[in-house]
Design a protein around this nucleic acid. Structure first.
Length: 206
DNA sequence: AACATGATGATCT
DNA sequence: GATCATCATGTTC
């Protein structure tokens, strides 16, 4: 009989077949799902409350000028982690979304801590619980995510994966994306209306 | 609540 | 050499 770390009910990895085709659909689908991380101190998880889609032909996308060493995961099979360094100090977690061969991904911008907030504080410091995962850089810090997790299969129990979540359905708002200049008008950001755990200016979150 | 600024380094032109 | 899919801290309203 195999002994294995127990995964609590509801935190089991999503099957890849359950991920919708289409990266914009994936960005909507991931709202309310869980990001789960196996940390030395135990499992940590957050309920996703904010995502952004980066699509083919999208000048704001890292894949706009084709595949490079950095963005290669965006061109691989869906449901894998694309992790990159931004502004020289922070990491950001994306989920690859396109059919194999095209380069698309969903940026996970913010989440509501649901498990292991104490473990997250080890990497985030003494900040309000609300701010643990509010923003892509903060979320990556809270879950100790860096480039070593680039390419991780998010549909399998490992260091990092996606789970079903559940809980109350969220009302989803749509807005322009944050922090970009090219193709900035496109309505490709999704957020949980009324959630305190969403990042960005209040004016975008209505 | 809104805005300004500095930190800091890989990546690509 | 310019450009960032950001954050923390500061100032001003």
């Amino acid at each position: 009989m195999t002994v294995q770390t127990a995964i609590p009910e509801g935190f089991e990895p999503l099957g890849r077949h359950s991920l919708p085709d289409g990266t914009t659909e994936l960005a909507r689908f991931l709202m309310g799902k869980l990001v789960v991380r196996a940390l030395p101190a135990g499992l940590a998880a957050g309920r996703i409350v904010e995502t952004e889609a980066y699509l083919t032909g999208d000048a704001a996308s890292h894949a706009f000028r084709g595949m490079t060493a950095r963005n290669r995961v965006m061109f691989g099979p869906k449901g894998h982690a694309y992790v990159y360094l931004i502004y020289g100090m922070y990491f950001a977690l994306n989920v690859s979304g396109a059919a194999e061969g095209a380069g698309e991904a969903v940026l996970i911008r913010a989440a509501e801590p649901v498990l292991g907030a104490g473990a997250m504080a080890r990497y985030r410091g003494e900040v309000p619980e609300r701010d643990l995962m509010r923003g892509p850089g903060r979320l990556a810090m809270a879950l100790d995510i860096d480039r070593s997790l680039d390419g991780t299969d998010l549909c399998a129990a490992g260091p990092l994966w996606l789970a079903g979540g559940g809980g109350e359905p969220q009302e989803i708002g749509v807005s322009t994306r944050i922090g970009i200049s090219r193709d900035a008008h496109r309505p490709l950001r999704f957020f949980a209306k009324g959630s305190r755990y969403v990042s960005g200016p209040a004016s975008l979150n209505r």
